[in-house]
Amino acid sequence: MSKHIPQSLSPFFQPDEIALTEAFLDQAHVIRPAEDRAALDRIQRHMAHTAASLLDRPEPDDPLVFLDGIHEHVSVEKLNDFRLAVFRAMNDQDWLRPAYFSVARQALQTLVGNELSMQRRVNLSIQLPNDDSSLLPVHADVWSGDSPYEVVLWIPIVDCFATKSMYIAPPDLDREIQERFTDFEGRSAEDIWRRIEPHVRFLEVPYGSYLLFSQNVMHGNRVNIEPTTRWSMNCRFKSVMSPYADKRLGEFFEPITLRPATRLGLEYKLPGGFQE
């Protein structure tokens, strides 16, 4: 019997949908193999090609090895300019967003809906070893104006593990901290981190897989003390008809899978003569 889906509704779900739903609601995230590995490999190859071109390096034979070792070619001082150049080059590709979506299409449709809005730009993070300039302090995105109806599709372009990855607070601890948030009034994100540090775990997300997580739950990263560089991309998705917050439809989000009945409904106008 499902813990989260009422018994009366469970016949409407397939067993694999129930299992995915249970895992996501229990942990506020799921890690799964890429649903379209060819699309993911295309993203990785193009990213490695772009990075090599920007650095005037030869085309890499092994994109993962090249990207893992990018700290040998890019200094901390030049990292952000380099990251932005790769970010722009990737988002200039009209195939990027459809390919990115296809990596987790079925999971997104199960967990979010089949009428989706997608962020208009796919974000890129690069974290060099021992670099403290690329840190994301503990936070939940809803604290800064995101809709609680969003999920984040986080895709590693190299193997991500331990401090080369990100962490998510366990849902029970997250609820406890957020319910007592006034206890941290006047204190810093680092104070929250010290409270949750013994209980969080850094997620192991190898290349060839993806992470879907609720950005309502506290998460972040720390200094990457592993010997290789982290490359990851992230993008938000939400149901088209769910409430928006500061990030609006048409500005930050764009509908990608609007269904015909919804299109007809949005376009329909009653003929004149009907009473209100």
Rank of each mutant, 00 (worst) to 15 (best):
residue 134 S to T: 13
residue 132 D to V: 01
residue 212 L to H: 04
residue 15 P to C: 09
residue 161 F to L: 09
residue 210 Y to N: 05
residue 228 T to S: 08
residue 247 K to C: 03
residue 9 L to C: 06
residue 261 A to D: 14
residue 135 L to R: 11
residue 5 I to P: 05
residue 67 L to C: 06
residue 21 T to M: 08
residue 28 A to W: 01
residue 84 L to V: 09
residue 62 D to A: 09
residue 123 N to P: 00
residue 174 D to F: 04
residue 272 G to K: 13
residue 106 Q to N: 15
residue 190 E to Y: 09
residue 3 K to T: 12
residue 201 R to M: 11
residue 115 E to N: 13
residue 72 E to Q: 15
residue 141 D to E: 13
residue 76 V to G: 05
residue 10 S to G: 05
residue 190 E to M: 12
residue 207 Y to I: 11
residue 217 V to K: 00
residue 154 W to K: 07
residue 183 D to E: 15
residue 80 N to D: 15
residue 38 A to K: 14
residue 27 Q to I: 00
residue 138 V to R: 00
residue 164 K to A: 13
residue 68 D to Q: 13
residue 40 L to H: 05
residue 195 R to Q: 11
residue 225 I to C: 09
residue 102 S to K: 06
residue 187 R to I: 01
residue 83 R to Y: 05
residue 78 K to F: 03
residue 118 M to N: 01
residue 197 E to N: 10
residue 105 R to C: 08
residue 134 S to R: 15
residue 138 V to N: 00
residue 163 T to P: 05
residue 230 R to K: 13
residue 73 H to S: 12
residue 183 D to F: 09
residue 31 I to F: 04
residue 154 W to C: 04
residue 217 V to L: 07
residue 42 R to Y: 07
residue 229 T to W: 01
residue 207 Y to H: 14
residue 268 Y to L: 11
residue 65 V to D: 14
residue 55 L to G: 09
residue 234 N to H: 15
residue 140 A to E: 07
residue 18 I to E: 08
